[in-house]
Design a protein around this nucleic acid. Structure first.
Length: 369
DNA sequence: ATTCCTTTGAAGAGC
DNA sequence: GCTCTTCAAAGGAAT
């Protein structure tokens, strides 16, 4: 599916960023329509029921059809199961052994869990976003935004840590942060400076871990709207995460390092600039807490499954809002980090997905041969 | 401590 | 141009 629009690409034409996204939602009409008519016809209540039954089938397939990995999906008989599910079955067996359906059942016990709670999302705030001026590309300075929430100070299980861009705009009454918030954070934030740093999601606790003196402070692209030449924006962008997500607290003895070593070290210590969140990620960030609260689920994998279904159940208009948000985030990201490429983060996560894929491919080939 | 799981979408690589 | 792969978030579970 993503491939359909990758050609025209968000990076394609400046303001066209993300436009294909919206198009995509409409291009998929046929398929999606089916999906939607299914979902909406039966109502969102069916989401969890389907998920439940599919999971049950999966686990049955895993337990009963040990030698037939595809059995579970076959039993589901749902259009969506098709190709994508084939790739997942293998993994599902691990995630949903005997235990998971139980936890999921917990969630299913709450009827409101399946109700269309996404409907009361505060999308109206999106209109505000629509009027949000472009960050700096057109030589304009964004309007000063209310100070950010101090994400680093939030407890891990508090309110969902939405992408600040969205968080702000989705709040009907954006709460102005205490005036001394920047002091609390120990950073300088020039008045009248657009708080671009807040437009990206912050890895939990990473703000507090970020070093105060890092190269991007003085990066020209980060001087957006500073208005004070020579005065750094003085706040690390939340999209930037130190390598391994932790700040190196112990100063190393440079005298013991060769130049090459320290160079390599610097390379290694280069903070990671995270990818901007896509529409679905933004949606997940907002809805996760609700699903957790209403479904008493905790496992992200299960929650994400539900969210994925609800995402499909969203109307085009509702989805379009998230696509637009994502587009804005990408624009901001591009302006903040002009040279950044998604490739920069390749290989920074150690994964076995290739192995996994090969395995599942093997499974599939076995299944279909 | 690290990786996996799970979702969708964006973007890069390779053919 | 198409397909495949990786990463983005999240947090419990598994290793």
């Amino acid at each position: 599916m993503p491939q359909l629009d990758s050609g025209g690409g968000g990076a394609g034409g400046g303001d066209d960023l993300g436009a294909p996204d919206e198009l995509l939602a409409f291009q998929d009409e046929g398929e999606e329509q089916d999906d939607k008519s299914r979902d909406s016809a039966a109502g969102p209540e069916r989401d969890l029921a389907e998920l439940k039954s599919s999971l049950v089938n999966e686990s049955e397939g895993a337990a009963g059809g040990a030698g037939v990995p595809g059995a579970g999906a076959g039993a589901r008989g749902e259009a969506e199961v098709g190709a994508e599910a084939l790739g997942r079955e293998h993994a599902s067996q691990r995630l949903f052994p005997d235990k998971l359906p139980e936890s999921l059942e917990d969630g299913l016990k709450a009827p409101e869990c399946a109700s269309g709670m996404y409907k009361d999302t505060v999308y109206s705030a999106f209109n505000l976003l629509m009027h949000y001026p472009p960050p700096s590309g057109a030589g304009q300075h964004p309007q000063p935004q209310p100070p950010l929430h101090n994400k680093a100070s939030q407890p891990a299980h508090s309110v969902p840590q939405l992408s600040p861009l969205y968080e702000h705009f989705s709040s009907p009454h954006p709460t102005p942060a205490p005036a001394d918030i920047s002091q609390k954070q120990g950073v300088h934030r020039p008045l009248q400076t657009p708080d671009l740093s807040g437009f990206y999601s912050l890895t939990s606790g990473s703000m507090g871990q970020l070093p105060h003196t890092v190269s991007w402070f003085t990066h020209p692209s980060l001087m957006l709207g500073s208005g004070v030449p020579g005065h750094p924006a003085a706040i690390p962008h939340p999209a930037i995460v130190p390598p391994s997500g932790k700040q190196e607290l112990q100063p190393y003895d440079r005298s013991l390092k060769t130049q090459a070593e320290s160079k390599a070290e610097k390379e290694a210590k280069k903070p990671t600039i995270k990818k901007p969140l896509n529409a679905f990620m933004l949606y997940m960030k907002e809805m996760r807490a609700k699903v957790i609260a209403e479904c008493t689920l905790k496992e992200s994998a299960a929650i994400n499954q539900i969210l994925g279904r609800r995402w499909h159940a969203l109307s085009r208009e509702e989805q379009a809002k998230y696509y637009e948000l994502a587009r804005k985030e990408r624009q901001l990201h591009m302006q903040l980090y002009p040279g950044w490429s998604a490739r920069d983060n390749y290989g920074k996560k150690k994964r076995r997905s290739r192995e996994k894929h090969q395995e599942s491919n093997t499974d599939n080939s076995l299944h279909y041969s």
